[in-house]
């Protein structure tokens, strides 16, 4: 299953599921990453990690490892 970490710059996707096993998964959901929401990959750094995702009208920077919980 693809996840948010596979998104390319400018690519959009709808969240299908959040992986519940990761310790950060609840915080990720609380910040607004819930199934059905649209996310857009807005940018990254020269190190390609973390990435910036837009969700619910805001932008969240998140490490690749944690973005992997956001299934699309």
């Amino acid at each position: 299953m693809k996840s948010a970490k596979d998104l390319k710059l400018g690519e959009r996707a709808i969240i299908k599921d959040i992986d519940n096993d990761h310790p950060s998964s609840r915080r990720i959901m609380e910040l607004g990453f819930t199934p059905g929401q649209e996310i857009v990959m807005l940018g990254s750094t020269v190190f390609n990690d973390p990435i910036a995702l837009s969700v619910r009208g805001t932008i969240i920077a998140i490490r690749i490892k944690e973005a992997a919980c956001i299934k699309i």
């Binding site: 929401q37 649209e38 807005l42 940018g43 990254s44 750094t45 020269v46 910036a52 837009s54 619910r56 009208g57 805001t58 932008i59």
Partner: peptide
């Protein structure tokens, strides 16, 4: 569409540069 779910336009534009791979650095 649901345009209220889009981040602030000005911020999106500026972040194209600030979160740019090389310009950002």
């Amino acid at each position: 569409g649901r345009s209220f779910a889009r981040p602030d336009e000005f911020t999106l534009k500026l972040d194209k540069i600030i979160l740019h791979k090389y310009f950002g650095l």
